[in-house]
Design a binder for these strands. Structure first.
Length: 930
DNA sequence: CATTCCCGCCATAAG
DNA sequence: CTTATGGCGGGAATG
C-alpha cells in the first residue's frame, strides 16, 4: 500500500543488474530521509552497511498497519550486535548486554562503522525471520487487522522480496499466515499451530514417513551391501500408496482458508516441502531428523538410490532454508547425530510434542452444510484433478469456485455459529476480543493437555517442567522399567549438540513416578472442555477453499469456526483418524461425539502414559508408538485393499471440502466405516506386523507391542486435498483454571499465553531464568534512541532487541514472568513441588527477553510499554538458534534411550546417565514402542 | 574439504 | 505486457 512499494520494487529490479546493493536503501523510506549514506556504501559492493548509523536517524516512517514501522536502524544494530557476538560466541543471545548502541558498542575498534562484515549471519534467513516474527504477536487478536504487506515487510526489514517469500512460504505451510491476495498475507500467529501440527502428524503417519525414514537410515548405515535391496522392496511395496508422494498442501480450516488462491501455483516445493519436513519430525520417534534422510524423503520419488547429486544438493539447500525459518520459530534446533560413521547434520524437534487436536466438533449443524458440501466437494474434486503437481493447471483458482465457496462458508457460519460453539469466554479480561481469548484458551488448553503440566511449570517452576518433560520423553523413549527417570535430566545445555543415538535400545515402558502424577494434573487441566472428540474429526479435507475471508478487520466469527468443524467421524462412530486418540481405556474408540468423552480421551492419553502398567501397554499406542502402529496397519491395509481403496490412497482424487463437507454423509462416512473395519483387521494382524515392522526398522523386536486397535488411524481422506482442521478456538474457559493455578491469574491470561515459548514446548529451564522482565523495561534514556521516543507501536522487534541488549536478561533462577508492564504480576513460582531438582537444567544461560507486540489496541491495560504501547514481555528461551548457547533442552527431548548430547563445545553432556542403550546399531532412531 | 546457505537469475503464474 | 512468485543452483562464507 504504501506508495513506496512500487518504487522500491522497481528500484530493486533495476539495481540488481548493476550492483548488488539493491535493497536496502530504497525502501528505507525514501521520503523521509535523506540520509542515506548507506546507499552509497552499500553499493559499493562491500557489504558494509552503514545502516546502523542511519538507524537512529531514520524515523520510523513507514508505519503501516502492521505494526508500525520500525525504525529499522535499531534493528539493524541489534542484528549487528548479534552477529558480531555470535560468531565468536556461539550463543547469540547472551551478549546483548552490551549495548545499546549499535555499532560502536560492540566493537571496540571500529566504532560506528564497524560492521563491515556482517558476516553472513546477519543476512541469514533465520535472523530475518526473527525480525519478521518479532513484528507480530504469536496470538494475534483476530479482531484486528492482521494483514501483512509484503512490500512493507520487505522494506522495513530491508531485504529483498525474494527472501520474504521464502519466509512466507514456510509460515504459510504452518498456517501461521495465509495469503489474501497479491501482496498481502494475513497473520495468524501460532493460533492454529497445534492444529496444524496435529494434522501434519496425521498426514505424516499416513504416508508412513516413519518407516521410510527408518529404511533410509538403515540403508545408509549398512551402506550398500547386503540388505538394502530387500528393505527397499518392502517399502516400495507399501509404497503404492506412497506413491502419492506428492501431497498437497495441508490446509487448516477456518481462519485460514483465506488463502484460497494459494494453492495455485503448483504448490511445489517450499510450502509442501516444509510441511513434509515437519511431518518427519512429528512422526519420528526420537524427534531428530537428519538432513540427508529428510532430503531423501523429500525428494520424493527418489526411489532409486542416489539420485543425482545435484538434486540432492538442491534439496538440501532448501531444507536449510526451511530449517532456518523453523528454527526461528523455535520448532526445531540444529543438532548433530553421530552415527558410527560420523556426525551428520540433523535437526531436532523442539516444538510442542503433543497437540491434542482440539477440535471441536460440533456435531450439530449438519443440515445446511451437506448441501453445501456437496457442491463444494464437487468443485474441489474438479480442482484437484486439475491441479496435479508438476503440470500446470489452468484451472487453479477458479474464481467461480472461490465465490461459491465463500458463499457457502458464510452461510455455514451463520448457521453454525451459535449453537454448539461454546463460547464462554470468561474473559472478563478479554474485553475486546472474546474470540481471541477463546482461541487462546483453546490453545492453552491444548498445550496443557499435551504437555500436561508443562504449562504450569512454565510459570512457576522450572523444575516441574523438567520433570514432566522427562516423563514425557520417557514415555516415548520408554525406558526400561528399572531405569530411573531422572536420566534425561541431564542438563545438557548445549545448543548445538551432538546427539548420539544408539540404535535400539530396548526399553520397556515403565512407569515412573513422574508419570503417575501426571494424571492428576491432567484432570485438573482439562476441566472444562474438551472439545469434542478428537480426532480426525476435526480435519476435513479441503480443496482450496475460496479465498473467502470475512472481513479482515471485523470478523466476529471465531466461534463459528469452531462450530463448523464438524467431524465426520461421528457418524461412524469412530473418528477416522484420531491422532490423539488412543485412549487406552476404550478399546473401542468410538467415542461418542459428546464432548465429555473427548475430555476423557485426552486425559486418557495422558493417563495412559502415566499409569505404569498401562503405560506399557498403552504407551505404544500413545503418540509415538501409535504412529508406528498406524503405519503398519496402514501398510497392511494398503496391501489388502490395494485396488479397492485406491481412492483413499490417492488423495489427490478426493477433495472434500472440509468445512462444507464435514458431514459424514458423503464419502467420508464411507471411509470411516471402512476404516473401522480395517482397523480391526489390521489390529489383528498387527501383531505379526509388529514384528516385522520392527525388524524392518532395524529394531529388535524386543517386546511385543500391544496395540490397541483403536489407535490406528484410519486413513482418512486426508491425503488428497487440503486438509482442514477444525479450529479449536472454542475452548476457552480453560484458562481460568489455569490462571488460578498459576499466580498470574490476575493478569489477563492473554498475556500468558502470549509468550511465544509458552505455546510450545516444555520449557526447558532456561525460560525461567529470565528474571522478571517488566522491570527491565528500557529506560528512556537507553541508548537506543528509538526506545525512548517511541510513541506507540514501536516495533516490537526493536524492543526486544533492545531489552536484550540492555541486559535485561536476568540471571538464572529468576522467575519467568510475563507480566504486563504495569502490574508485572509476579508469578511467583507457584510452589509446585518439583520432583526434580532444579539444578537440572537451569542455567542461566540467559534467557532472552522478547517483547512481542500485543494486539495493539486493547491490550493496553495490561501492559504498557514505555511509550504507552502495549507490550508484552516474554522470556524466551532461545532466540534463534545458534548453536552456542547452552540449552538443556535437547537433552530432554532426546529419548532417554541412548542419546548423548554433546555440547557444541564438545563437552559431553553429563553422561548418558541412565540411559539405557544398547549400542548395537548405530542408527539413532529407534522406535520405541513399548 | 564439508557444511551452510545467500544471492539473485530467470521461469512462471497472476493481473 | 508488467508484476508477483518462487524454483533453483552457483558459489561464497564458514566450519
Amino acid at each position: 500500500m504504501s506508495s513506496t512499494s512500487p518504487e522500491s520494487q522497481n528500484l530493486r529490479h533495476k539495481t540488481q543488474t548493476t550492483t548488488s546493493n539493491h535493497k536496502g536503501n530504497v525502501f528505507a523510506e525514501p521520503q523521509a530521509l535523506t540520509k542515506t549514506p548507506r546507499k552509497a556504501s552499500t553499493q559499493g559492493t562491500v557489504l558494509t552497511e552503514i545502516q546502523s548509523n542511519m538507524g537512529p536517524l531514520m524515523t520510523p516512517t513507514k508505519g503501516r498497519e502492521t505494526g508500525t514501522g520500525e525504525p529499522w536502524t535499531p534493528t539493524s544494530n541489534l542484528k549487528m550486535l548479534m552477529s558480531a557476538a555470535s560468531p565468536e560466541i556461539r550463543n547469540r543471545e547472551k551478549e546483548l548486554c552490551i549495548d545499546s548502541e549499535g555499532g560502536d558498542a560492540m566493537d571496540p575498534e571500529l566504532g560506528e562503522e564497524g560492521e563491515k562484515q556482517i558476516s553472513r549471519k546477519e543476512k541469514s534467513l533465520g535472523l530475518l525471520c526473527h525480525k519478521f516474527l518479532a513484528r507480530y504477536p504469536d496470538y494475534p487478536n483476530p479482531a484486528l487487522n492482521n494483514d501483512i504487506s509484503l512490500d512493507d515487510v520487505a522494506t522495513e526489514l530491508n531485504v529483498e522480496r525474494r527472501r520474504i517469500y521464502d519466509i512466507m512460504n514456510v509460515l504459510e505451510s504452518l498456517h501461521m499466515v495465509s495469503r489474501l491476495a497479491k501482496n498481502r498475507y494475513t497473520w495468524h500467529g501460532r493460533v492454529n499451530l497445534p492444529q496444524t501440527l496435529a494434522k501434519l502428524r496425521q498426514v505424516g503417519e499416513e504416508h508412513r514417513y516413519r518407516q521410510q525414514m527408518q529404511q533410509i537410515r538403515q540403508r545408509s548405515l549398512e551402506k550398500e551391501f547386503d540388505s538394502d535391496g530387500e528393505e527397499k522392496e518392502n517399502e516400495e511395496v507399501e509404497g503404492g500408496e506412497q506413491g502419492m508422494k506428492e501431497m498437497f498442501f495441508v490446509e487448516l480450516p477456518g481462519v485460514e482458508f483465506k488463502a484460497a488462491s494459494v494453492n495455485s501455483r503448483k504448490d511445489k516445493s517450499l510450502r509442501v516441502m516444509s510441511q513434509k519436513f515437519v511431518m518427519l519430525f512429528l512422526v519420528s520417534t526420537p524427534r531428530v531428523v537428519s538432513l540427508d534422510v529428510a532430503a531423501r524423503i523429500l525428494i520424493g520419488e527418489d526411489q532409486v538410490a542416489d539420485q543425482d547429486k545435484s538434486k540432492f544438493k538442491t534439496k538440501v539447500r532448501r531444507l536449510y532454508d526451511i530449517a532456518n525459518v523453523l528454527r526461528s520459530l523455535k520448532l526445531i534446533e540444529k543438532v548433530h547425530v553421530t552415527e558410527e560413521r560420523g556426525r551428520k547434520p540433523a535437526f531436532e524437534w523442539t516444538g510442542p510434542e503433543d497437540f491434542p487436536n482440539v477440535k471441536e466438533t460440533t456435531a450439530t449443524t449438519a443440515t445446511a452444510k451437506r448441501k453445501l458440501e456437496s457442491r463444494t466437494s464437487v468443485d474441489n474434486c474438479a480442482k484437484n484433478l486439475f491441479s496435479s503437481p508438476g503440470s500446470k493447471r489452468s484451472f487453479t483458482r477458479h474464481p467461480s469456485l472461490i465465490k461459491l465457496a465463500k458463499s457457502i462458508q458464510e452461510d455455514r457460519r451463520k448457521i453454525n455459529s451459535a449453537p454448539t460453539s461454546p463460547v464462554k469466554n470468561d474473559s472478563s479480561s478479554s474485553e475486546f476480543f472474546p474470540t481471541k481469548m477463546a482461541q487462546l484458551a483453546a490453545i492453552c488448553k491444548i498445550q496443557l493437555d499435551q504437555q500436561s503440566n508443562k504449562v504450569v511449570d512454565r510459570t512457576p517452576k522450572p523444575a516441574v517442567t523438567v520433570t514432566e518433560a522427562l516423563s514425557a520423553h520417557q514415555q516415548k523413549a520408554a525406558k526400561k522399567p528399572g531405569a530411573p527417570q531422572p536420566p534425561v535430566l541431564t542438563p545438557t545445555e548445549t545448543r548445538a549438540s551432538t546427539v548420539h543415538l544408539t540404535p535400539r535400545a530396548q526399553f520397556t515402558p515403565q512407569p515412573t513416578g513422574a508419570m503417575s502424577f501426571h494424571p492428576a494434573q491432567c484432570s485438573p487441566l482439562i476441566p472444562m472442555l474438551l472439545p469434542q472428540h478428537q480426532g480426525g474429526g476435526p480435519y476435513a479435507i479441503y480443496m482450496h477453499p475460496s479465498s473467502f475471508r470475512p472481513h479482515p478487520l471485523t470478523r466476529p466469527q471465531p466461534t463459528s469456526l469452531a462450530v463448523r468443524s464438524m467431524t465426520f467421524e461421528d457418524k461412524t462412530g469412530r473418528s477416522p483418524s484420531d491422532v490423539t486418540v488412543q485412549g487406552h481405556s476404550s478399546a473401542t474408540n468410538k467415542l461418542p461425539t459428546s464432548s465429555p468423552s473427548a475430555l476423557k480421551r485426552v486425559c486418557s492419553e495422558r493417563t495412559s502414559e502415566e499409569s505404569p502398567s498401562k503405560a506399557k501397554r498403552i504407551d505404544p499406542s500413545t503418540r509415538d508408538t501409535s504412529p508406528k502402529l498406524c503405519d503398519i496397519l496402514q501398510a497392511r491395509l494398503k496391501a489388502r485393499r490395494g485396488g479397492l481403496l485406491s481412492s483413499r490412497p490417492s488423495p489427490r482424487a478426493l477433495h472434500l471440502d472440509p468445512e462444507f463437507i464435514n458431514t459424514p454423509g458423503s464419502s467420508v462416512a464411507v471411509a470411516a466405516n471402512q476404516t473401522l473395519e480395517q482397523n480391526l483387521e489390521t489390529f489383528l494382524e498387527k501383531e505379526e506386523k509388529v514384528t516385522t515392522s520392527d525388524s524392518e526398522a532395524g529394531l529388535t523386536p524386543v517386546r511385543a507391542v500391544p496395540l490397541n486397535p483403536q489407535h490406528l488411524h484410519t486413513e482418512t481422506l486426508i491425503p488428497t486435498g487440503y486438509l482442514i482442521p477444525i479450529s479449536q478456538q472454542s475452548l476457552f474457559s480453560y484458562k481460568d483454571l489455569h490462571n488460578t493455578e498459576g499466580s498470574k491469574a490476575s493478569t489477563p491470561t492473554y498475556n500468558i499465553y502470549h509468550t511465544p515459548t509458552a505455546g510450545s514446548r516444555p520449557p526447558p529451564i532456561q525460560e525461567f531464568t529470565p528474571t522478571s522482565l517488566p522491570l527491565h523495561r528500557p529506560p528512556p534514556s537507553s541508548p537506543f534512541s528509538a526506545q525512548g521516543h517511541r510513541f506507540h507501536s514501536p516495533s516490537p522487534a526493536i524492543l526486544n532487541f533492545t531489552l536484550q541488549n540492555l541486559g535485561l536478561i536476568p540471571g538464572p533462577g529468576s522467575v519467568p514472568t510475563c507480566s504486563p508492564g504495569t502490574a508485572t504480576t509476579p508469578e511467583h513460582p507457584s510452589s509446585m513441588p518439583s520432583p526434580l531438582p532444579p539444578h537440572l537444567g537451569l542455567h542461566q544461560r540467559g534467557g532472552m527477553v522478547f517483547v512481542k507486540p500485543m494486539s495493539p489496541v486493547p491490550v493496553q491495560h495490561q501492559m504498557t510499554g514505555p511509550g504507552g504501547q502495549p507490550l508484552t514481555l516474554i522470556s524466551l528461551q532461545q532466540m534463534t538458534t545458534p548453536k552456542g548457547t547452552a540449552l538443556p533442552q535437547h537433552s530432554f527431548f532426546h529419548t532417554p534411550l541412548a542419546t548423548m548430547v554433546t555440547t557444541s563445545h564438545g563437552h559431553t553432556a553429563p553422561a548418558g546417565n541412565k540411559t539405557v542403550y544398547i549400542p548395537q546399531r548405530k542408527l539413532d532412531v529407534t522406535t520405541e514402542d513399548t
